[in-house]
Design a binder for these strands. Structure first.
Lengths: 235, 235
DNA sequence: CGTAGTTTTGATGCATGCAAGAAGTCACTC
DNA sequence: GAGTGACTTCTTGCATGCATCAAAACTACG
């Protein structure tokens, strides 16, 4: 095993660490390792055919991102999220996306606007086809486009962290954008774009915040309904 | 040296790592290691009388916090901040503190209000005495009290990261709350508290954002004036 | 004198050994 | 049978060695 590793290191360069972190993050986010599951360094090291050292570093990073909990001298575990945290994260989401929309509106004519318009059209098609998978993907894109269009790298950075923590709760949230809300959600997207077209920062921010808020309300209601049932589906 | 370390480990438990991280962070934030300075693992290891491993972990953490930059296979360096980043961070600060003020206003009667009122009184005294040190400290406290009063742990967490990155730019920013702005700043604090007393979330948020925005404008103007001159003062 | 190729240096990235500690297990006592 | 104590096991935390690689220094050549 040692020789194999050495070889791969020689070939791949030091992309090992970043790759490893990504893999681990994906496994936690997807629920492959469910909340509460232990993540022993040695086990993961063998799993990924590296030594404990890079695994350790990756785990520390994940702890920093809020996905796992390291109990000193005991072990690392996938964090168990609380409902309260979800509410808190949605409050943050609202604020950050509102900021992004406002900044984007201030930027004048930007390519993002075309992308958003097309996104809405596609969303409508997906809604008509009742293609919830495609729809969810488009929603995700819509929000990210606005954030990245804010042209504020620090905002993007913090938003990314936030979304990682929220994506982690996707288990709970996947039931969210259910058909009943899809139409309303699209209308809200449209009004955000309208404000952007009119270069109205305040309007854009308010529209965005209203939208996120509405989604979050639907989300928490959804979570109340069937929270645990969908937990193992993704794995 | 090895035995000494072993001993200390036995005595102190595993508080070593957290302590080390704090020390390193402080050294970077204070400018002891100025922007651009290299941070070789071996050097730091000897400096703190530990091995490279814990140093490495601490450095990775600092990279994650945006304070240092790790160039693979080359080395770690104290990050050189750009002016643009400062603007970006202030935009985020405005948004997050606005959110916090709004949330706090929604919470009804809370002990934080008394703290804030006292803070303003003390600030006025400090202003009359032209005690800029005390005044800066009070401003810091004011803002943190509001954020922590939001009762949103995730907000506090993200705000903390943000402020670390901003504190890092303190070198540039310290010239900010100059006497000319102190009185205006206190008035703005007062209007925030007024809105809080009236349990007016929207008003509180707007007041807070207006205040942060005004500070940030003053800050960037200050930075434009004498940015580099004060750089070594703090070290 | 400038430039390309080569060597040397110095730092990181990873693997591994060892000690310390926490948690669960088992036996022993009352 | 229940509770308490020692013990075993499993895991982390840290130290250190070695291979790798980037960049600087040096040399030779045009």
């Amino acid at each position: 095993m040692q020789e194999v590793t050495q070889l791969r290191k020689g070939i791949q360069g030091s992309a090992t660490q970043a790759t490893l972190l990504d893999k681990l993050r994906k496994l936690v986010l997807s629920g492959e390792y469910p909340p509460g599951a232990p993540l022993p360094e040695l086990f993961l090291a063998e799993e990924f055919e590296v030594s404990r050292t890079p695994v350790r570093e990756a785990l520390k990073q994940l702890e920093n991102e809020g996905l796992v909990e390291i109990r000193p001298k005991v072990g690392t575990f996938v964090r168990i999220p609380t409902r309260r945290e979800i509410v808190e994260l949605f409050q943050l989401k609202e604020s950050l996306e509102g900021l992004a929309a406002g900044l984007l509106a201030r930027r004048g004519p930007v390519p993002e606007l075309e992308i958003l318009k097309r996104n809405i059209e596609e969303s409508e098609r997906a809604e008509r086809r009742a293609d919830t998978g495609k729809y969810a993907e488009l929603v995700h894109e819509f929000h990210w486009t606005i954030v990245q269009g804010s042209d504020n790298s620090k905002l993007v950075e913090h938003y990314g962290r936030l979304m990682n923590q929220l994506a982690y709760h996707r288990i709970v949230l996947e039931t969210v954008e259910r058909p009943a809300r899809m139409r309303a959600s699209i209308r809200e997207h449209q009004s955000v774009v309208d404000a952007l077209l009119e270069k109205d920062p305040v309007g854009a921010e308010l529209a965005m915040r209203g939208h996120v808020n509405a989604s979050s309300l639907a989300a928490s209601r959804g979570a109340d309904a069937g929270s645990v049932t969908g937990a193992e589906k993704e794995a």
